[in-house]
Design a protein around this nucleic acid. Structure first.
Lengths: 110, 110
DNA sequence: TGACAATACTGTATGCCGTACAGTATAATG
DNA sequence: CATTATACTGTACGGCATACAGTATTGTCA
């Protein structure tokens, strides 16, 4: 892979980086487990890998923005995550920041 | 500062993170030196600190997306940066990615 | 005129967080 | 019955923003 491509990939990954939390939290309005979350987000064009999502979910739970429950009734054990109250507020705050950022960047790009 | 505020600040900083390169490169369509770049971006609502900008400029030059020239004729020495050819393409690629990201995230947030 | 703020940079250290990688185990498929 | 898909855990690594410290010159204003 060319140096150029390497740097571009890296910059693209940096671009996505901040939006990861946004994408994940916004999807967890309703309870969902990790593996299915990957597929749901994927189907909407939001690509996220296992190795990115699982650590992120754990971190967000530690920070108390997500609650989790193991469902062992299903065909196989699944850990369902959902927004906590605090997480709901956090998401709202982040969305505000995101929208403000978009305006600023778009004005720079004109 | 509360834990909540700490996590929010961190997430906001992650949100900005990817857009830093976008903001800086888009401004360097015309030659400009670091210190003034901070002020120009600042006046447009894009906040960036010395300790963030200078290392970023050095990195982008190392990656050959920026060229630089010392101007010592001025009242004091200033290092002017401007997009290279490669940088111009890089910026265009990044903008494409940025716009695509916005669409995806916004569709998630609806 | 002399101190303090503003200007304008360099360089190193730190820490967060995404990602890679390795591993575990069960269920579905063909 | 082997292979693939599902569904998770945990650690190691590296890139990059940010903090911090440092240097030196110019402008201001009391």
């Amino acid at each position: 892979m060319s140096e150029y491509q390497k740097y571009l990939d890296s910059a693209i990954s940096e671009l996505r980086r901040g939006t990861l939390v946004l994408g994940v939290l916004s999807a967890l309005d309703k309870p969902m487990y990790g593996y299915s979350l990957i597929q749901v987000l994927h189907s909407k064009g939001f690509l996220i890998d296992q190795s990115t999502l699982y650590p992120l979910l754990r971190r967000l739970e530690k920070q108390e923005f997500l609650k989790s429950d193991w469902e062992i009734e299903d065909s196989r054990p699944r850990k369902y995550y959902v927004l906590s109250e605090s997480g709901r507020k956090f998401l709202a705050d982040l969305i505000g920041e995101w929208k403000s950022n978009i305006k600023i960047i778009n004005s720079l790009l004109d």
